[in-house]
Design a protein around this nucleic acid. Structure first.
Length: 833
RNA sequence: GCCGGGUUGGCGGAAUGGCAGACGCGAUGGUCUCAAACACCAUUGUCCGAGAGGGCGUGUGGGUUCGAAUCCCACACCCGGCACCA
């Protein structure tokens, strides 16, 4: 039974014949290796398309998640090839990162050993999985030929003032022993290892992504049309634009005013105290000598709090009086200045005007410290809360020069800002939640930061002709995290001559966040082997922006924001000629099992290799594509890969039944089957373009069913319409199930590869039905169906409907009030109720 | 709290103003077989009915419309993002 492909005559009559999945996979993998059907040609005259999928971290072999994303992505890439585009569909590896480093410590080896082994395994699995990647363009970010250019880009950013060092409290992961970017702290814990993140004062490198905050936000308006809503929303929330004002407060005994940021300048009359972030330098500047000790005690308390506790909003308010007073610029009142941890040092100016009447947090603080509350917005009569944050008429808001009384919040805001600007006391301001991107990491397996620190010259860039700064050879225990970078231990590597003055100097010992590596990899694929530049701008112009980016939604505010930022900088540098790298995006869901995320601790993991062994590559791919809309999660427990395999066997069996010869004239073939084929091919294209792959598969299943019926009880296997239908099935299936499609194509008497034969040509005339079913409704309920000509007139259709026996019976003599006719599909008869 | 997405048979899902449940899974009955597997055929939202046929039905309640799963309003629940961000 398993050798059917070697005895075709025997099975042609056997309805239960099956093909040997394993043998077919081995056979075609070899053929494709020879043919290389998916090499992207830079010089092709065809229109170009760039299908990109997020490159994986090589943590081991491929798993179910990769299987899903590659299957979905491949439908589009293969579809584009069939439609005649030149398709760039590259794959590489994001190979710097912690797991390799941890494995190296465990196994007393170099991280590269682990990395290379996993990459080799993954490539082999991708090939078996029949993903249509162009392997001639592959690269790894941990290769010096790649990270040389990562370093070059860092230096370009540095030269433009977009990479800088500052001392600041940073997120510290006590387990991974490294700092983390804001984006990598989720709910107060490290998004990699789950440890509670603490704060640490360190001098670190940052990218000035905040310079691009407004543009990163504005760009989303256009991307919204082609990107998933959840990603656009997540980025908008993350950038967090707010509009308000800076207001200057004079401080007793100090020349410099303190500027606060507020979104509610209309409430300035109600500002009864001021709060400065306890950990901001400003707090230390303002505090009086009498209060200095109290502030320092308070700071110690604050630093003990974990990030998780600090984020909790129901925590009682704490703070300490700084011993100084500020002057409310509108009321002239002297208001006390406090330090508290509910004000953040790195948002706004690190200082706020507190308006307890209109802000719940300020209200709570005022209760604890017994501070006065002045309402400046009249709450509704039935209001029984604390602070009133809603809209309403201004009260208690007038002095000799300005009177807001009765104004709504919006009017009161603009009036106050105008006044402050006239008086030089403040100005309209836009503020962002987005912080600069902290890129230093105190770990080994990353791209070294190409800076040399010289006591007389400062931060000196490594000269371009000395790039790459390669990693010193460290292994095993040398890599153990000890709170400072392992690179610091390689003394010969660290100590160098200053490139500027020649004096003794040291290399920067931190490495870059691996998200730097992945922020520009999409450009590198356009000229992956160019050793003279990061990428060839002319080739990038040919291929980019990428037409589709498929990947996980977990990167909504990390990689996807960083990559957009890099593109904008590269555009400002004149290296690329667009400002968004990814025109369209598709996020696949997760593959889960029994309602839960797969995990080792739950023991509910599904091994991809086991599934491929049991059902074959095609059936697993088909199952993942057919499961539902691509962005939905797939619960593998609800799936039936054996059902998918049954369908593929059924489809394959058709190819053995066809008896007409290749190239037979189809024009005289069975018209009904020809119409079904034409309609299916026509609709399938639109469905793929709308990412509705599951429905596309359903339509192919219907075509297979119709063809089976035609062979067994219709026009018979010799009708050329049957050949036309089965050839269409093979081509459509080549997007999802490449092995069986190839096998069918061969059985139909053609040369490989079906993957590049082109989309089936549809005779437009066949898309016009010769009769349609018109539905007759009475009061919106279906009472009869009529077979009518598609070009029937409305009058004829109405007459036919009203004359129909079933309709007459259902009307039961009731008077007809109105008849709605939508020829040729529908008639709705409205009768007296 | 603010922002976004969702809720359709036993299950995954189709239908985006016009036949609710395409396609598939599962289930039940049958054909083939010594038997099973495979394959094939039939049935499969629910209620009433022998049947023909009919009633009800897309989270809940209202509305718009000749006609609503689809559009509008309110509510409930689920998922995701942001959150002591002033």
């Amino acid at each position: 039974m398993n050798e059917t492909h070697e005895a075709p005559e025997a099975q042609d009559t056997d309805q239960a014949a099956t093909y040997d999945v394993g043998a077919v996979e081995t056979k075609w993998q070899r053929v494709w290796e020879d043919l290389q059907p998916f090499r992207a040609d830079d010089d092709s005259p065809r229109e170009k398309r760039y299908a990109l999928t997020m490159f994986p971290y090589p943590s081991g072999d491929l798993h179910m998640g990769h299987a899903e994303v590659f299957a979905l992505h491949d439908v589009v890439a293969r579809y584009w090839w069939q439609r005649g585009y030149e398709v760039l569909n590259p794959m590489g590896f994001d190979s710097f990162g912690l797991p390799a480093e941890n494995a190296a410590i465990r196994n007393d080896e170099h991280p590269d050993t682990y990395t290379r082994a996993n990459i080799a395994k993954s490539i082999e699995s991708c090939k078996k999985y029949a993903a249509s990647f162009d392997w001639s363009r592959t690269f790894n970010t941990s290769d010096p030929t790649y990270y040389r250019w990562t370093q070059w880009l860092f230096l370009e950013f540095f030269k433009r003032g977009l990479a800088y060092r500052k001392n600041s409290p940073v997120n510290w992961c006590p387990v991974d022993q490294t700092v983390l970017a804001n984006e990598q702290v989720v709910g107060g814990v490290c998004d990699r290892c789950g440890a509670e993140v603490t704060k640490k004062e360190l001098t670190q490198w940052y990218f000035k992504i905040t310079d691009y905050a407004q543009e990163l936000l504005d760009g989303l308006d256009e991307l919204e049309k082609t990107w998933p809503a959840r990603v656009v929303t997540a980025q908008r929330n993350w950038i967090g634009r707010s509009e308000g004002a800076h207001v200057d407060f004079t401080i007793e005994g100090r020349d410099e005013p303190v500027t606060v940021y507020t979104t509610r300048p209309d409430t300035l009359f109600g500002a009864t105290f001021m709060v400065v972030a306890a950990d901001a330098a400003l707090a230390g500047d303002l505090v009086t000598d009498e209060q200095r000790e109290a502030l320092e005690d308070y700071l110690l308390e604050v630093r003990k709090e974990t990030e998780i506790n600090r984020l909790s909003t129901d925590r009682p308010k704490t703070g300490v009086f700084l011993g100084v007073h500020a002057t409310n610029p509108l009321t002239g009142t002297h208001i006390p200045v406090y330090a508290a941890d509910y004000v953040l040092a790195d948002y706004g100016t690190g200082a706020i005007m507190a308006v307890p009447g209109q802000d719940q947090r300020d209200w709570e603080f005022a209760q604890v410290f017994d501070l006065p509350v002045i309402r400046t917005v009249q709450p509704p009569a039935d209001f029984d809360g604390d602070a009133f944050t809603g809209d309403g008429p201004a009260i208690n808001s007038a002095n000799d020069e300005i009177d807001l009384s009765g104004m709504g919040v919006a009017k009161a805001k603009s009036t106050t800002i105008a006044y402050l600007e006239r008086q030089g006391l403040g100005r309209r301001t836009v503020n962002f939640r987005l912080r600069d991107w902290l890129l230093s990491r105190q770990r080994y397996w990353g791209a070294p930061i190409p800076i040399i620190h010289c006591s007389s010259c400062g931060e000196v860039p490594v000269p371009e002709d000395q790039l790459p700064v390669t990693l010193p050879m460290l292994r095993g225990a040398d890599l153990k995290p000890k709170g400072t970078s392992p690179l610091g231990g390689a003394e010969e590597w660290v100590n160098v001559d200053c490139p500027t003055c020649g004096g003794p100097a040291t290399r920067d010992t931190d490495t870059m966040d691996t998200f730097v590596d992945s922020s520009w990899y999409m450009f590198r694929y356009c000229s992956p082997h160019d050793d003279t530049q990061a990428f060839d701008s002319a080739k990038v112009d040919e291929w980019m922006p990428s037409n589709l980016y498929v990947g996980g939604v977990e990167h909504a505010v990390l990689h996807l924001l960083y990559g957009r930022f890099f593109t904008k900088v590269l555009n400002d540098m004149g290296l690329v000629h667009f400002r968004e790298p990814w025109s369209a995006q598709l996020n696949q869901g997760f593959v889960i099992n029994q309602g839960k995320k797969m995990s080792k601790s739950l023991g509910n993991g599904v091994d991809l290799g086991d599934q491929l062994g049991a059902f074959g590559v095609d059936a697993v791919r088909l199952t993942l594509v057919f499961a539902g809309p691509p962005e939905d999660d797939i619960d593998w427990a609800n799936m039936s890969p054996d059902g998918s395999l049954r369908f593929l066997q059924r489809a394959w069996r058709l190819s053995g039944d066809v008896t007409s010869t290749p190239g037979a004239d189809v024009s005289a073939g069975d018209p009904a089957l020809r119409r079904t084929t034409a309609r299916t091919v026509h609709d399938a294209g639109g469905l793929v373009e709308a990412y509705r792959f599951n429905v596309m598969v359903a339509r192919v299943m219907e075509l297979v069913n119709a063809t089976r019926k035609a062979i067994d009880s219709g026009c018979g296997p010799a009708d050329p319409a049957v050949r036309e239908a089965v050839e269409a099935v093979a081509i459509l299936l080549s997007l999802v199930a490449p092995y069986v499609a190839e096998e069918m194509w061969e059985k139909l008497g053609h040369e490989p590869t079906v993957a590049r034969v082109g989309w089936p040509v549809v005779d437009e005339a066949l898309l016009v039905e010769d009769s349609v079913t018109a539905v007759v409704q009475i009061q919106g309920k279906v009472r009869a169906r009529l077979e009518v000509s598609p070009d029937i007139t409305e009058a004829d259709l109405e007459a036919a409907a009203l004359g129909d026996e079933a309709v007459v019976r259902a009307l039961d003599g009731k008077p007809v009030r109105k008849v709605i006719v939508k020829a040729p599909k529908l008639v709705n008869i409205v009768v007296e109720a």
